[in-house]
């Protein structure tokens, strides 16, 4: 089942794919920024500060998405004893961590002109801070434990525990009263973002996803080189 994850093969494919991903990322980001900063209209209420949303929302989505992926991969590590999956999760984590910080910082910047405060300890923001702490402890434990087997075990446990926080983030705005507004994009009900604002949001999400993929591929290759240098054929 996991033949596909043969490190040597992946290394060769990765090295080729990285260039194309970078190229694609630059194109999508340029279109996204043009749409978000120039072509899209201002909001009837927030005027131009709505443009912060085009960075804030994709960053939040991707940081949550990456953490969920790490958690599922970690479950795979535990269930199938496949160590390569933990290498993938390890390589995914840095961009998710960075996007989590981006989401919090842009949210604070947006909060000043709209809410009148840059920070509120409401359920949404607090749960995002908890996610950031989980990312932090996850990344730290990869560095702290020299013994690879031990690091794999501990990081997997952290990710599996942390995934409980993901639905809390998602539904915090529905379960409790929060200063943060509820989701505008819903699968079941009508979307409350006008289409002229939805398009730049979608393009920026694609751009950020490509950026994460790029960082992931680079980090993953670095990890593979590290393993090779240690004189190990496989994990």
């Amino acid at each position: 089942m996991f033949k596909f994850f043969e490190p040597n093969k992946i290394f060769l494919i990765n090295s080729k794919v990285t260039k194309y991903v970078l190229f694609l990322f630059i194109i999508v980001l340029s279109i996204g920024l043009l749409e978000a900063l120039v072509l899209s209209p201002e909001d009837y209420k927030q005027s131009h500060s709505v443009r912060i949303m085009y960075v804030h929302v994709p960053a939040a989505w991707i940081s949550i998405g990456i953490f969920s992926s790490i958690a599922f991969l970690s479950m795979g590590v535990f269930i199938f004893k496949n160590k390569n999956l933990s290498l993938i999760s390890k390589s995914l984590a840095p961009s998710g961590f960075i996007f989590n910080i981006v989401a919090l910082v842009t949210g604070a910047i947006w909060g000043i002109p709209t809410w009148g405060t840059w920070w509120a300890w409401d359920a949404r923001i607090t749960s995002m801070v908890i996610l950031l702490l989980f990312y932090l402890i996850y990344l730290l434990s990869w560095r702290i434990f020299d013994n690879n087997d031990k690091a794999i075990k501990i990081t997997s446990i952290i990710a599996i525990f942390g995934v409980i926080n993901v639905p809390i983030i998602k539904f915090s705005v529905d379960w409790w009263t929060t200063l943060h507004q509820p989701s505008s994009i819903n699968i079941l009900s009508k979307t409350s973002i006008h289409s002229s604002m939805l398009i730049p949001l979608a393009i920026m999400t694609a751009a950020f996803a490509l950026f994460s993929l790029l960082i992931f591929l680079m980090k993953y290759n670095t990890e593979l080189i590290k393993i090779k240098n240690k004189g190990l054929d496989r994990l």
Binding site: P41, D43, Y44, W115, L179, S183, S192, I193
Partner: peptide, 11 residues
């Protein structure tokens, strides 16, 4: 504090 709603649209 002003609470913003989930509606986004041009003027």
């Amino acid at each position: 504090l002003a609470k913003h709603d989930e509606n986004y649209m041009p003027p």
